[in-house]
Design a protein around this nucleic acid. Structure first.
Length: 999
RNA sequence: GCCUUGGUGGCGGAAUUGGUAGACGCGCUGGAUUCAAAAUCCAGUUCCUUUGGAGUGUGGGUUCGAUUCCCACCCAAGGUACCA
């Protein structure tokens, strides 16, 4: 009987769906295990083979855990709000909700394009997802809870004394009693101080404004990159050289009132929490760097002739007597004010030049030193000496205060700046030469020339100077974080609407929880309005009636009982910041999730996803989780115990090379190999129309006289060829290519030896290059096609077999035949009967078969625990090869073997399991138990090395002593042959391992 | 610049604690089977000047022994904030 994978896979996928095999219960005698994938954004392009890599790995792990007796939660859903759907809506006028549904469920879009749909594609790969728990972030019954969390954040403040988020009502009570003098909270810098009496005297508007300084989500003016032409705000990396990446429109910095999330309140806890999660170190490093904690002091420098002060943050307050200038970021707010008339022109020119440079550019360029003196002077807090104030683009406005106290003797950048501009470099270090470079070694610092700090090391000097600064009222010790509050408003249509309306004073009010969700209004176009308002400004029914408690027409707005709703929507990361908890109880309409559900599942045990989410999704999710923990909603303040980053699968593009300097009427493609020969031979190309044969010969030989150029790769333009037209030997299907690109219908193809390709006998070999998998590079490989041709089990095995999960690796469809023929061999192992009929015996297996089985159990179990899935596929191949040659057909071997294979290739496993006589799914069959006794050996084939190089092998009993081994080896003829009469200096014997003879 | 990851045959990769470098698979070569092809099976396949020798990005070091540990460097990919 043949291995009929198409029918087998269909049969079991239907079986799993019908029997709800993978539906997880929220209570069980078994221990729980939660395996989570980062859910996909359902794009119209569908899945390619790179997408399921992580899903296959997590599925193997989830299935393995079921075999190990766990109650496994393995859900899947869609992160279905997002920009591509909105762009598509703008272009085609289709509602993003419709296109999104088609992308998930399949169907035909307005253009008549058939879309398979993510769900079908995923189902085809045999994943053990519990689809009854599916969530879609763009469904109102899901985003109801995203809005709900937003309201909870609005109604909370961060109490630094308690080090947790608390109810805003408690803060109001405290204000009524004592004002805000004794409140320790994370709040805006410019929060005024007031007494209880002040508070009581405030108007409602004033009170609300004060409270916004404390709320965990708050309205603030933030600067954004505004692109008037696109009517939208752009991210830093959407801007290239000061203009938008799309369309090249000018971008201006604009202040906008937007919602912000006070993530900075959690900076320290986000940092500390990294200690207790098992996440990849590079990912932890990037979060640590993103949070950017540094300890030092805030120092205020008074300005000469101005009331203002320049605030700086420094990690080296101990070096304050070494300050010889200050540098402000060119964007610093004081620059315009303090620049003297003489310097004005130079400063303005410099600012203009800086504005054209991106932050990345300013950061990466350490060689160019630039800056301009403002003409102004600050005053040293202790010596009262004047300090010149410069501007320089090595200081970034976005970090700290945007100003630096420059200590050239202790900081290399300040040193280089001072040298370049001939600024004084006072030495304040004892016994250190600073004539060549700055001295930045904190540990070996002894301060000198510094008044009251003389003779002190770094730590004591820092302590002392902070105390002195505090006395002067010009500074204090401070911990600074790079982390900024996160802007939470987007001027887009396809996102969660805010449950917020604005009163006549422009103050925000939350809609009561019981009226959620506030669903997205219909609009007739998805672009910003003509007045520059976000797309929701196009809605005619987008006002909140506080009496009727519903969304009503805009015309009813009276600012008494009917108010305007927020026109912004939430960002992409809103919906993904708590979905892992919602999966635990996804249909609950009363609560975000029940306490029973969250207390049972607790947290994610294994999370698999891409490293590109290191500082976005994964940081915001941790923030929301900590907030929910403070509110007593979740039992764990970190949502995922272990995290694995899967690498990218890159595509192997295929190229044909068009000769750009031929003057024949026909297009000529030369093979990669032939061009190499021509270039290596330094062949010449001439420009005369000749019969084709002459033309080819002129490529390789120098034609007398009329030479125009030496052959060069630049003469041959590479064009992508669709990878589906190339076989496993890199041979192009020439006819297929001509049909695919009709403009090349008459093209001539020249093979590796300069032959013109005609018919099937000659081969055009394409060039290969590894690139990101993308439609435009024609290197996308569709998993459906692979499933069709080789089956889902082959696809699953092959994706794992490609290499280590975490590394990026190129896809090459040709190699899949290896794992496919492995599955066929596996099938034959169970079908040794006449005409390939199913047949297993009840005979006792021989010793070798037991050994093969148990070493396989051991290795596969270790591999899965270490997420080394590629090596277990090899192990299966070795096992099947060995069992085949042992002619093993014993049930005692073949039954446990198929359980081992089952997490990787579940369809074939179910089929064989059924044939073995089981009427229940294999999915919960207990994982075979490894027994050491089958691997015990009595002898070992020792490698015999000479000076560390293995020269021959010798089979010896394992119970020989060291001396016995040595004498046996030394007496061996091959040893004498190697030594050629020499006497060895030394013989190293490691019993059970190796023998090494030195000399 | 800085941080992170990586560099092993023609290709993907293996070598889990310092102990046989190249497992397993692809590709390639030869053979069997076949009218032929597909499929399947068997043998070979790191390189070289082959009774031997060299070899895991480069150059050093530690060691009886290094892909593995240490130092310096080169290259590639990803990230990034001159962090004061």
């Amino acid at each position: 009987m043949q291995y009929d994978f198409n029918n087998i896979e269909k049969k079991w996928q239907e079986y799993w769906a019908k029997n709800q095999t993978f539906k997880a219960k929220n209570d069980s005698e078994k221990e729980k295990f939660y395996v989570l994938d980062m859910f996909p954004y359902p794009s119209g392009a569908g899945l390619h083979v790179g997408h399921p890599l992580g899903y296959i790995a997590s599925d193997i792990y989830a299935r393995y855990k079921r075999h190990k007796g766990f109650n496994v939660l393995h859900p899947m859903g869609y992160d279905s709000f997002g920009l591509p759907a909105e762009q598509y809506a703008i272009q085609t006028g289709q509602h993003p909700a419709d296109t999104t549904r088609v992308n998930i469920e399949g169907g035909v879009d307005k253009e008549g394009k058939k879309i398979e749909g993510y769900r079908k594609q995923l189902d085809r790969m045999g994943f053990s997802f519990d689809w009854s728990r599916e969530v879609r972030t763009s469904n109102p019954n899901y985003y109801k809870w995203t809005q709900w969390i937003f309201i909870q954040l609005f109604n909370s403040w961060y109490n630094t004394d308690a080090d947790k988020a608390e109810d805003i009502a408690d803060l109001i009570t405290a204000f009524e009693k004592n004002g805000n003098a004794n409140i320790k909270a994370v709040c805006d810098e410019d929060t005024p101080s007031f007494t209880a009496e002040d508070w009581k005297a405030f108007s409602e508007k004033e009170k609300q404004e004060v409270l916004l300084n404390y709320r965990l989500t708050y309205l603030a003016e933030s600067e954004v990159n505004w692109c008037p032409a696109l009517g939208t705000v752009l991210a830093n990396d959407e801007i290239v050289n000061g203009v938008s990446e799309r369309g090249g429109h000018p971008v201006v910095r604009k202040k906008m009132t937007q919602w912000s999330m006070r993530i900075t309140a959690y900076a320290q806890r986000l940092l500390d929490g990294l200690q207790k999660v098992d996440w990849p170190q590079p990912l932890k490093d990037s979060q640590t760097n993103w949070i950017g904690r540094s300890v030092g002091a805030a120092v205020d420098f008074n300005l000469k002739d101005f009331e203002d002060t320049i605030s700086v943050f420094t990690t080296r307050p101990d070096t304050i007597f070494g300050v010889s200038f200050m540098t402000l970021a060119p964007e610093h707010e004081l620059v315009g004010k303090i620049t003297t008339p003489e310097q004005k022109e130079a400063v303005e020119a410099y600012i203009e030049a800086t504005a054209k440079r991106s932050e990345r550019e300013r950061m990466a360029d350490v060689k160019t030193i630039s800056g301009v003196f403002t003409g102004a002077y600050a005053e040293h807090p202790f010596t009262k000496e004047p300090i010149p104030v410069w501007i320089g683009d090595y200081v970034l406005a976005g970090y700290g205060t945007g100003a630096v106290m420059a200590v050239p003797c202790g900081d290399q950048r300040d040193y280089d700046f001072a040298k370049h501009f001939n600024i004084d470099i006072p030495n304040i270090f004892e016994g250190v030469d600073i004539s060549e470079e700055a001295f930045a070694d904190k540990e070996n610092t002894v301060i000198a020339n510094s008044d009251f700090l003389n003779g002190l090391p770094y730590k004591e000097a820092t302590k002392k100077v902070i105390a002195e600064l505090e006395k002067l009222g010009q500074g204090e010790g401070k911990v600074n974080y790079r982390l900024r509050d996160a802007v939470f408003s987007r001027q887009r249509y396809w996102g969660e609407p805010f449950p917020v309306y604005y009163d006549a004073d422009g103050l925000p009010h939350m809609i009561e929880e019981e009226h959620l969700p506030i669903t997205l209004p219909e609009v007739d176009k998805y672009l910003p309005t003509e007045t520059g308002e976000p797309p929701l400004g196009n809605a005619t029914e987008w006002a909140w009636d506080t009496v009727a408690k519903k969304v009503v027409e805009n015309s009813k707005i009276d600012n008494k009982t009917v108010f305007a709703l927020d026109l912004n929507t939430m960002p992409g990361w809103a919906g993904s910041s708590q979905y892992f908890n919602r999966y635990m109880d996804p249909k609950n309409e009363q609560e975000i999730f029940s306490q029973e559900a969250i207390n049972y599942w607790q947290d994610v045990d294994l999370y698999i996803g891409g490293s590109e989410h290191a500082t976005g999704h994964l940081l915001y999710s941790r923030f929301w989780q900590k907030f929910m923990f403070d509110k007593g909603l979740v039992p764990k303040d970190e949502f995922a115990k272990k995290l694995i980053n899967q690498g990218m699968i890159t595509g192997t593009s295929a190229f044909v090379y068009r000769w750009s300097q031929n003057y024949l009427e026909k297009v000529i493609f030369l093979s990669h190999g032939f061009i190499s020969k021509v270039v290596d031979a330094r062949g010449f190309v001439n420009d005369y129309s000749k019969p084709l044969e002459n033309l080819i010969s002129s490529l390789t030989s120098k034609p007398g006289g009329r030479v125009i150029s030496e052959a060069n790769w630049k003469n041959f333009m590479p064009l992508h060829a669709d990878v589906s037209l190339v076989n496993s030997s890199d041979e192009l299907d020439v006819e297929g290519f001509k049909n695919w690109r009709p403009e090349f219908k008459d093209a001539i193809f020249i093979g590796d030896n300069g032959e013109i390709i005609e018919g099937d006998n000659d081969k055009y070999i394409v060039g290969r290059e590894v690139e990101k998998m993308s439609k435009s590079k024609y290197n996308v490989v569709n998993p459906d096609a692979i499933c069709e041709e080789f089956g889902a089990d082959s696809l699953r095995l092959y994706e794992m077999f490609l290499g280590p999960l975490e590394q990026s690796k190129p896809w090459n469809t040709a190699g899949i035949t290896g794992v496919h023929s492995f599955l066929k061999k596996l099938w034959r192992l169970y079908h040794g009967g006449a005409d390939g009929a199913f047949e297993v015996s009840d005979e006792e297996p021989n010793k070798d078969s037991w050994k093969t089985l148990h070493k396989t159990i051991k290795k596969v179990e270790e591999d899965i625990e270490n997420f080394s899935f590629n090596t277990s596929v090899s192990t299966f191949m070795i096992a099947v090869n060995e069992l085949s040659s042992q002619k093993c057909a014993s049930r005692k071997i073949l039954e446990p073997l198929i359980i081992l294979v089952s997490p990787y290739a579940p369809h074939i496993a179910e089929e064989l399991w059924e044939k073995l006589g089981h009427d229940e799914s294999i999915s919960e069959a207990p994982f075979p138990k490894f027994e050491e006794k089958y691997l015990v050996e009595s002898s070992k084939e020792y490698p015999i090395s000479f000076n560390g190089k293995m020269r021959f092998k010798l089979e010896l009993p394992l119970d020989l002593s060291k001396d016995e081994i040595e004498s046996t080896v030394m007496a061996h003829e091959k040893t004498q042959q190697q030594l050629q009469g020499r006497t060895p200096k030394k013989v190293i014997v490691v019993p059970g391992k190796i023998v090494n003879i030195v000399g």
